[in-house]
Design a binder for these strands. Structure first.
Lengths: 342, 342
DNA sequence: TTGTACGCGTTATCAG
DNA sequence: CTGATAACGCGTACAA
């Protein structure tokens, strides 16, 4: 019941190990006779031979493994992307290894090391803050990788992103066009570029219309304390004696949106009558909310397929120039942001 | 810039390859001198040596890889479990490889083969219908595995499940106690045992109270057509001239529940005034619904930790007896199933 | 402590 | 032109 090795096949077929290897890898540039090919194929078939990937990897220095680092595979945004990447990777004969960083640089480093130790052929990475040095290390050891979702300004690498600034600007513009004048943003307290761009797009749009009355239009939330901070932030914003309550809120992520909408429900705020709501990213949670939520939809499928495509190209040819792909997100309009009455 | 091998360390330390191997694996049963140990450790440190897992695996026949097969990693139920298993596996030095079967036997077989080819040390599997032969094959080649979420009746193997029958019986009993008399079940059209048990628990509870008026109390939905079938089923159940409309619905999965609740919203049915609702499995979607949903919560963390624990034990000792662990799910009571008025 | 066979394919080189 | 031989990738663990 032990594994069948190439040697067993060679013996059974009555040929050399090398011939078996050539036949089974289709490296038969008219070098091997037809009868040999037949014998080898039959023997392999009968013995139900499966090549030992480990031995093959040891020799070829390729594992056909792609590593994926996300913040958290339990987050629907990442699990959906993971699923797409899994399928794409399988299509081209690769296996996907997934790791969750929890936005924690130490865990991130651990994952990088793990993938290097396992000798992944390439990595798809949603990078964490303050991890530039680990990415530089990857570059030094010529490990191909492509960044998704985000990028780090000091890193020159292939990456797939969306037009964070523009879509955020457009969303804000859209709310303004719909008559909203006191729009607030709920964002993460972070230095991650893609999130800062969402904030910038928002404030730039407000400024253009001279609607940036106070710098408190942006609520920065600690990612480790979402529920509490949103709760207290909203308590403050929507307290009775606040004469200048927001008339619209824009959440920059699905987690923020879910937490925020829950709080709004508790506060008994009617959407969109009392308050318009727009969210970033899709989640099935929006579908059960009484008012269909307007949200920014990222092209997840394209992100996943492009990531694999670019990575695969880089694996095949390390000298390829860096690609910086920016995909367009689209605004899916629901009723939570209908034109303001009065 | 090439990889540092054990040989490089040996040369730098001025000792043999064997010594390096012993030192770095802490197999120093007073066999190696202190100075040698020091020299080796310093050399390894300075060269930043990382052992080659592939070479190690080739020799030891162990990969420290655990494979996980789920129906779909994009489904929150599985992505949450995957996350827990990932963390548990990492704790004991294992890496997790994830594959999605889409409930498709061919894909399932492909994943099994892939994991075998990659020589995973063990597998955690949510098995698909009609895949008994592949599992038997695993047993024949002595690949350790543990089944989760479901089990196949003809397979004798370690498995972790929940008390599907009892919890389903209890939920139904609970609805009856709350005054509901025309309770319907929305289930999958399937032969999967764990789902059949949910249905059986439901019908048994109804029968006990002589409430199983018609065999139409169970709506069997094709998993590939959820939205359409629920939609037409509900259209039929809730049509105006139906004099015997349901007063309660129990969904046996989160996907069914989300789809069903969306349809109920469209139909303008008030929950729980017109209809009580209970769902299986947790999802953040329930939280944005106007009425907090009563649902069955599975002990995901325990499922994940137990799965890894049992698998690890089996990997360490193949002769261990089979474990059949049944965990208790609990009913999380919201307002969607409040005692019936009148 | 160390030399070395071994795990199992791949591929350059050599022989027929 | 066809097929075999053997070095190699890199650790592990037994024999010496």
């Amino acid at each position: 019941m032990k594994r069948i090795s190439i040697k067993d096949v060679a013996v059974k077929a009555g040929v050399s190990i090398a011939s078996v290897s050539y036949v089974l890898n289709n490296k038969i540039d008219s070098r091997i006779g037809k009868d040999t090919i037949e014998k080898v194929k039959r023997a392999a078939e009968e013995l139900n031979y499966r090549p030992n990937n480990i031995a093959k990897s040891l020799k070829t220095q390729r594992t056909n493994i792609i590593g994926l680092i996300v913040a958290d595979i339990a987050n629907p945004y990442f699990s959906q992307i993971a699923r797409i990447i899994e399928d794409e990777a399988n299509k081209i004969g690769y296996t996907l290894l997934i790791g969750s960083s929890d936005e924690n640089p130490e865990k991130f480093e651990g994952l990088i090391n793990m993938f290097c130790d396992r000798q992944a052929d390439g990595l798809i990475i949603a990078p964490v803050e303050n991890t530039e040095k680990y990415l530089h290390k990857l570059q030094k050891q010529k490990m191909p990788f492509v960044l998704i979702d985000r990028h780090l300004p000091k890193i020159e690498a292939d990456n797939i992103q969306i037009n964070n600034y523009e879509i955020s600007y457009d969303v804000t513009q859209y709310l303004i066009n719909n008559g909203y004048k006191n729009i607030h943003l709920v964002a993460y307290q972070t230095m991650l570029q893609h999130l800062l761009q969402r904030t910038k797009g928002f404030t730039d749009a407000l400024e253009k219309h001279q609607l940036l009355q106070n710098k408190n239009a942006v609520l920065d939330i600690d990612k480790d304390n979402i529920d509490q901070e949103i709760s207290s932030g909203f308590n403050h914003l929507f307290q009775k004696n606040n004469l200048n309550k927001p008339d619209a809120v824009f959440f920059t992520s699905n987690k923020l949106a879910v937490s925020g909408i829950k709080k709004l429900m508790k506060l008994g705020i009617n959407i969109p009558k009392d308050l318009a709501v727009v969210a970033f990213d899709e989640t099935e949670a929006y579908e059960l909310f009484a008012t269909p939520i307007t949200f920014v939809r990222q092209p997840l499928t394209t992100i996943g397929t492009k990531a694999v495509e670019v990575l695969y190209a880089k694996i095949s040819n390390h000298t390829l120039p860096i690609q910086n792909i920016i995909l367009k997100a689209e605004l899916h309009i629901g009723q939570s942001s209908e034109p303001k009455l009065n």
